[in-house]
Computed example of a mutant assay.
Amino acid sequence: MALGIGIFLVVVGAILAFAVEASVSGLDIQVVGWICMIAGVLAVVLSLVMNAQRANTSHTEVVERRDVGNPPPRY
């Protein structure tokens, strides 16, 4: 899910930084676009790192055997 959000932020940021030429008083739309692109790239990288760590996880099953037929020796 974070991978999709990251790609979305990169696309929206690129549109704001390069395609929109509107001006809003007190807000620089190009800077907002660059911030969105940086946040999107960071989200994509973190998502890929987390997925790589999840893929390298190994699980081992611990089985306890009990021998019911022979009781342990008494000393």
Rank of each mutant, 00 (worst) to 15 (best):
G33T: 02
G26T: 11
A22K: 15
V62C: 01
Q53D: 12
L46G: 07
G6L: 00
L48R: 03
A17E: 14
L42F: 09
V62E: 06
S23W: 03
Q53I: 06
M37P: 00
T60M: 11
I15C: 12
T60G: 05
G26S: 01
H59C: 02
R74P: 05
H59Y: 11
G33C: 10
S58N: 11
C36L: 14
I5C: 01
V44K: 01
T60A: 05
N51T: 12
N51E: 13
V62D: 03
N51C: 12
D67Y: 07
Q53M: 12
L16D: 09
I7D: 03
G13Q: 01
I7F: 10
A43L: 14
A19T: 00
V12H: 05
E64I: 15
R65F: 04
Q53C: 07
V44P: 08
V44S: 03
E21I: 00
G26A: 02
A19F: 15
V24M: 05
V10L: 11
I35N: 02
M37C: 13
A52M: 07
G33P: 00
L3I: 12
S23T: 08
R65T: 12
S23D: 10
R54C: 03
L27V: 13
I38G: 04
S25H: 05
F8K: 13
L27R: 01
V24F: 12
L46E: 09
V11W: 11
D67C: 13
I7W: 04
A52S: 09
G13L: 00
G6Y: 09
S47R: 00
C36K: 04
H59A: 08
L3N: 08
Q30A: 15
F18P: 04
S58I: 01
V44E: 03
G69I: 04
V62P: 02
V24G: 03
P72I: 07
G6C: 03
S25P: 02
H59L: 11
V20S: 09
D28L: 01
A19H: 11
S58E: 13
A22W: 13
C36Q: 07
F18H: 15
W34P: 00
R66A: 06
I29R: 03
V24Y: 10
S25I: 03
L46N: 11
G33I: 00
V31E: 11
V49C: 06
P72M: 03
L27W: 13
L3A: 03
F18S: 05
A14Q: 08
